[in-house]
Design a protein around this nucleic acid. Structure first.
Lengths: 116, 116
DNA sequence: CCGTATCCTCTGCGATACTG
DNA sequence: CAGTATCGCAGAGGATACGG
């Protein structure tokens, strides 16, 4: 995770903290409560386990997510949002709404043809 | 600009639209009103002209920004937010606040040592 | 003052295999 | 079920030069 050192305003730092293809959606999923790795892996379309763990680690590193490790077999670990994480969630809710309105509103969004 | 085709929720599409090192800060700057390229270039720490134009083009492509080209010499072009752009701005305001609180609150944010 | 074209580096992301 | 280790590649981002 790279956080830029020079920045024009705090916004840049905050967004660097959740920059990564899957970080926002991970936070978004954790709004539903504590989640296991396997659950997240199943629920997030297109992600793989390695990226999931990597992104979760970085989210933990900057205090957005925490985890609880239960002993025993099979292993059980639960990830959940910290208080800081919930603040980020409030920002993501705005973008979720924009996305909902926008995707429903128009039919030809030419830039979406770049979709992969 | 690549927008993922499979996604878990609209949030991912919306964030793909502003993904790019400088896009959020460009939008943020445009909250102040119409801006010229040279002004943005001067005001945004660390950006260069090529990236600025590239990111502006992509923001125009997906309807977040528009531009007006005035004839004459020297050339004058002004960039500004569309209605959709202002919606994104409301989301960014949340992250700006988080950043302000957060940066002021603690002194040792270890992950910031990765800053470059 | 705006914008385009090259070239080059570096890293984010994905596939895959393996360990506790 | 959770996590680590390797390897490879496409593409994002930056320096620099040129053109309208």
């Amino acid at each position: 995770m790279k956080i830029r050192s020079e920045f024009t305003c705090p916004l840049e730092v905050t967004l660097d903290m959740i920059s990564g293809k899957w970080k926002p959606i991970i936070i978004w999923r954790l709004r539903l409560g504590k989640q296991q790795l396997s659950t997240l892996n199943k629920d997030i379309q297109g992600i793989n386990q390695k990226m999931l763990i990597q992104h979760l680690s970085e989210l933990i590193e900057c205090g957005i997510v925490e985890k609880i490790t239960y002993g025993g077999y099979p292993l059980k670990v639960e990830y959940f949002l910290t208080e800081l994480g919930w603040k980020f969630l409030r920002g993501l809710e705005v973008f979720q709404k924009i996305g909902q309105e926008y995707l429903g509103q128009y039919d030809n969004k030419s830039f979406l043809s770049n979709a992969r």
